[in-house]
Nucleic acid binder design. Structure first.
Lengths: 341, 341
DNA sequence: CGAGTGGTGTGAATCGATTCATGACAGGGT
DNA sequence: ACCCTGTCATGAATCGATTCACACCACTCG
């Protein structure tokens, strides 16, 4: 493979200056037709591909936005990524997808990468509870949009779903089913998502005139299936055994379901189960899972659009916005009311 | 936010030339200690971050490898990506993760992006049955490694799993369970994975002295859960009803499982079910799924390592290699032999 | 006829880091 | 005193595309 063909080679071949070639590519209307066609032909002939790095160097920033998610193994984030990617592509931007795996150290490491790449901006679901990473983004002048998390102050845009409402939806549904002994299986308690969903759950209890003590809390280390299996085992050991369980996400719920099933506990007969996120596998579980649906795809798309607006040509007037979407309860077999209440 | 601080600012601040700053960063041992420390201090003070685009421009290629997978919604590919990412990061390279969604057009579009970015190389699970995209990679001088697919000729490395063997493992297991009426639920028949697994299945039948006709084939449009649900419905309509089903991947199997369950067909009582990939959700299904495990993580890692070797400093002597890993059958409840054979 | 106008094309400067031939200087050996 | 060697630092050239002030030409209009 020989040397890369550059804009100069094209110019020479077409008998024009490099400036003209650049114009053909970026502002074709300013070039006379004959010339334009001659240049195009030379481009095809030589198989010229323009170098992004050279463009970037000149432009001062890249045409890439980064998406840093908490857990790529969670299909919810994959949906989110798909939405963001589509919006970015429509705007001619590339997406760099990264996984912090809920680890602040990983998150910090990516920060360096993003800074070196001069990414346009970052869509991020932060793993660091202290907010160090976010402040570092700010310090480096990297614009960011919070996803699945509400911005605290005025420092950035955010797109999130009303998790308090989501928690309330889930618990109201269970209460309507006649359940009184409830358990909330949450992940690491410091995650805002986990907190907010619990808060909503407590709110729903209060509405129904029940004490906060009616919601037993089971914490887990992570928000994944393995943790769900653990939690399931703990549920089995409880007495009196709860009749309804609300999980902070579907991965946990699937883990719980698996353990209960293996122990011969019927769902929903003995225990009703509600998850959160409505990932595709929730519907595909052998006992289809009732879940609180989040518009993941749309969230990703909106977040990307906000970032694009913030970093666009007319960047001048941009005000940080906080978009809050509404969750929706999807009722399936796992929480059908018991036949004999 | 002011102008980006560049290497010149650092040089000026530290009272040295730009060349020296560059040396401090890239070859610290060639710089006297006092100078080095002075420069480091200036870097910290100014918050200098070197520009990747400028480096790249000089170097002629980027420090990024691309990973183009068939379906990001399939956890198998997410595992694969994680493995590749880890290996790349250890070598100081970034990974750009892309999803062709089984669409050759998307695949072709990414090609352009990769060429402009001058990516180091690409790990790809091709969607295009004709191999156009691969040839285009070659034409652009972009090195690539096939993943989950065996290279046909000598033109590239590949890392794959022996799908013929995998198919045989699955069907041998079902035959041992006493099943004779088998169905193979495959996806788009042109995918090599789908073909090879079927071929292995047929081989296992032949070993047992059964005719190829003993394996009924059900094709689907895609390799996902929705297609699996479709296939499940078709299975229900068959008579005589099969007693064992082998699916080309776990997503299909989960879809089939769901439909069977909803129709009151017992798994494995009435129908035994085997999937492929052993994604985490296979074990987490309420009837844990027997599956053929592929070392996805390791595949990703090895592929990345091959690519890194191929494009490394000493690129001189590199011979294309074809690595073939062995699959492994993981038996779970969904295929336990019927109690009354 | 000269000035003005609009449509085209030019080429040098620029972005920021790397690299390398060159130079400055100190210390040791003869 | 002189040369040699080794250590450090320098600064100009380079990568490839973009941009912009300017030049050039053909025409039109007064």
């Amino acid at each position: 493979m020989g040397r890369m063909v550059g804009i100069k080679d094209v110019a020479q071949r077409a008998g024009v200056s490099v400036g003209t070639v650049s114009n053909v590519i970026n502002r074709p209307e300013t070039v006379a037709r004959a010339t334009r066609e001659r240049v195009q032909a030379a481009i095809e002939l030589l198989g010229y591909v323009r170098s992004e790095s050279a463009r970037q160097l000149r432009a001062g920033r890249s045409r890439i936005i980064a998406l840093l998610v908490l857990d790529m193994a969670n299909p919810f984030f994959v949906d989110l990524a798909t939405g963001a990617e589509r919006a970015a592509r429509e705007a001619g931007l590339g997406v760099m997808l990264c996984n912090s795996a809920q680890d602040p150290a990983e998150e910090a490491e990516y920060l360096g990468l993003f800074a070196e790449q001069r990414v346009r901006g970052v869509l991020v679901t932060p793993a660091d509870p202290e907010g160090h990473t976010l402040r570092a983004f700010g310090r480096h002048g990297i614009p960011y949009v919070l996803v699945d998390r509400t911005a605290a102050g005025e420092e950035s845009c955010s797109v999130s779903v009303d998790d308090v409402e989501g928690g309330a939806l889930a618990v109201r549904h269970l209460l309507e089913g006649g359940h009184r002994g409830l358990v909330y299986v949450g992940g690491p308690p410091h995650l805002p998502q986990v907190q907010d969903r619990r808060e909503g759950a407590l709110g729903a209890l209060a509405e129904a005139g029940l004490p906060a003590g009616a919601l037993v809390r089971v914490d887990t280390e992570r928000l994944d299936v393995a943790s769900g299996r653990d939690a399931g085992a703990r549920l089995l050991g409880m007495s009196p055994r709860p009749t309804a369980v609300f999980c902070a996400n579907d991965l946990l719920a699937l883990g719980v379901l698996q353990t209960l099933f293996a122990a011969g506990v019927s769902v929903p007969g003995d225990i009703a189960l509600v998850g959160y996120d409505d990932i595709e596998f929730a519907a595909a579980a052998a006992v289809p899972l009732t879940s609180v649906r989040q518009p993941a795809h749309r969230m990703g798309r909106m977040a990307a659009e906000l970032l694009i607006e913030e970093t666009g040509e007319d960047a001048g007037r941009h005000e940080h916005r906080r978009v809050v979407l509404r969750p929706e309860l999807v009722v399936r077999a796992s929480s059908m009311p018991p036949r004999h209440p």
